[in-house]
Amino acid sequence: METDAEQIRSEFESELLRTANSQALKDLRNRYLSRKNGRLSLALRGLSKLPAAKRPHAGQALNQARQRIETLLAERQQDLETHESSQQQSGDPLDLTLPGRRLLIGQAHPLTQVRHQVESVFRELGYRIETGPEIETDFHNFEALNMPEGHPARDLQDTFFTEGGYLLRTHTSPVQVRTMMSRKPPIRMVAIGRVFRRDSDISHSPMFHQVEGLAVDERVTFADLKGTIAAFCQRVFSPDTKIRLRPSYFPFVEPGAEFDISCALCSGSGCPTCKRSGWIEMGGAGMVHPAVFRAVGYDPGTVSGFAFGLGIDRIAMLKLGINDIRLLFENDLRFLRQFPQ
């Protein structure tokens, strides 16, 4: 019982430190001293269960605790009253130059933030987000995309292979193939995800992220492709972004193109970021090659389509002003927290 009195007192003292106003103090008083349920009152009532010999000693300890508690309550009461009245009377004695209290809030990775923005732009344009596996078959990653075994374009996409003859997808285009094979036109889809190439330096990571759009319908044209790329880039970058398409070669599109956006840093007059050209390379695009349509069981005579793809990491690097792609995968909190959502 002696120890119980000790216990009650020490718990009281630590609770007392946390009372910030008169109301809290009142509650605290009730919890300890209330006749009915107060901890001390309960403990005093419990004395009757003790052997008679121990009662006086324990009772004394409890009474001492009670006195101590009452003294402390009174002191604290006075403190609080002085404090509260001075606060009310003299207006504002708070030093508001002290920093405010903040919570630490986490956040999505900057790449995820860009990805969400890209997704919402595509949803606005009427596209569905599709996903596919990261380990792919040769058929979905190459063959169906008009890159049969031995095609030189395979060399440009240096590929990781897993045991069992599978590969890590080198682009998001296999999602096009899977989507077309499982559905009928019209299709408006976008795939976003990780892709892998055996390449590593300041501008290449063996793992990076792509976004790819595909539209297939009865009358989809190259002009629609241009308009869609422009609409996309203007929403993701800025409304006055200009785009440029240059003829280029990708086995799965024909006609094919690479597209550039006007350099926002120099407004097209040339700077180191755009290699003095005024343009920044963004990605590849084109009209879906008839061989791809045949591979997925569509009739190239009745449908047409466009596809375009670009790097999410690249968009993020441009938007955030990062020049080393590896920063994106080091997960340094000092870096990540520079980009709160």
Binding site: L125, G126, R128, I129, E130, T131, R183, K184, P185, P186, I187, R188, M189, A215, D217, R219, V220, T221, F222, A223, D224, K226, G227, T228, A230, A231, R244, L245, R246, P247, A257
Partner: peptide, 21 residues
Amino acid sequence: YDLIPSTLPEARDSSDKVPET
């Protein structure tokens, strides 16, 4: 390529309505 106009494809519903994953 510069002379090709810039248009948007007709808005079309997808052929089926499976929710996005």
